[in-house]
């Protein structure tokens, strides 16, 4: 078997001496199994012998591994920290209950019954927003139990909008990809859209928000209409039934440093098509 492999390899390399090569080719003519084996070796060598593709793949694999590393390192770490906190909390509660119910408490000695609720705030404390950082908005009289929405630092991600960014494109009818940039005061947005449903002239709008949780979706910083241009119909790029469009938007905006989110909508659709973010 090893000899057979070496013979095939020498044949593919062109190093098989002439008489042997002719004999081998004659054998190939009459032996379909051998011919299939040689073909398989040829394809394997051609694929796995491509040095530049090898280097490219190795680079991609390294990047791919590094890309998932933060998510994987972060999540279990957070989870185990949460588990530890929960464990401590449960332990404290159980210990308190045991103490409360089973410790003989002589009437003469006033023993302070440990407050069961007391340990509870400590594990949750890091997640609570300090009172002095709370927004000075007044809660509506109809919902006095609502806690005020806290301000967050201007560069901190807004979780609700981040989820939409990660899920974008949000519509399968209007497949959209866009990118916005802010250079000095020049805001530009470029995007592409594939859709069989888009009617020419239908208005598409861009709405810009800062990162503050209380401002989305009711308090945009800026709104404007996006220019939509159909990409040349003769261009070879197109999905069978869909047309391709180029989206363009420019505006002059004076924004302080921070994280901003932009939302793209089309008239007649309740849901946003795309939510992106940019930093200033």
């Amino acid at each position: 078997m090893q000899e057979q492999y070496e013979r095939i390899e020498a044949y593919l390399d062109g190093t098989l001496p002439e008489p042997e090569r002719k004999a081998f080719e004659a054998e190939l003519e009459g032996d379909k199994t051998l011919a299939a084996e040689v073909e398989l070796h040829r394809r394997v060598h051609r694929t796995l012998g491509n040095a530049s593709e090898w280097a490219f793949r190795q680079n991609l694999e390294a990047i791919s591994e590094a890309y998932e590393a933060p998510a994987e390192n972060g999540k279990p770490g957070n989870r185990s920290a949460l588990r530890l906190l929960l464990g401590i909390l449960i332990l404290i509660i159980v210990a308190s209950l045991l103490y409360y119910f089973f410790m003989p408490a002589p009437d003469a000695e006033p023993v302070e019954p440990p407050a069961i609720e007391q340990p509870a705030p400590s594990p949750t404390a890091p997640e609570e927003v300090p009172k002095e950082e709370a927004v000075e908005e007044t809660t509506t009289p109809t919902a006095p139990e609502d806690t005020p929405i806290a301000n967050i630092p201007p560069d901190q991600p807004n979780p609700a909008l981040e989820a939409l960014v990660a899920a974008s494109p949000l519509s399968s009818t209007y497949e959209l990809a866009a990118e916005a940039r802010l250079s000095n005061q020049n805001f530009t947005l470029e995007g592409e859209m594939l859709s069989a449903q888009y009617e020419e002239g239908k208005s598409m709008t861009l709405t810009l928000f800062d990162n503050q949780p209380g401002n989305y979706p009711d308090a945009p910083l800026h709104t404007g209409e996006i220019q939509v241009m159909e990409i040349d119909e003769d261009a070879p790029i197109a999905f069978a039934a869909k047309k391709a469009y180029f989206l363009d938007y420019e505006a002059t905006l004076d924004l302080p440093a921070g994280l901003y989110y932009y939302v793209i909508r089309v008239d007649g659709e309740a849901e946003a098509l795309w939510v992106g973010k940019m930093e200033r």
Binding site: E175, E192, F239, F246
Partner: peptide, 11 residues
């Protein structure tokens, strides 16, 4: 490249 890069990648 006859389209946008993302159009190609996505396709």
């Amino acid at each position: 490249l006859t389209s946008g890069f993302y159009t190609l990648l996505y396709g």
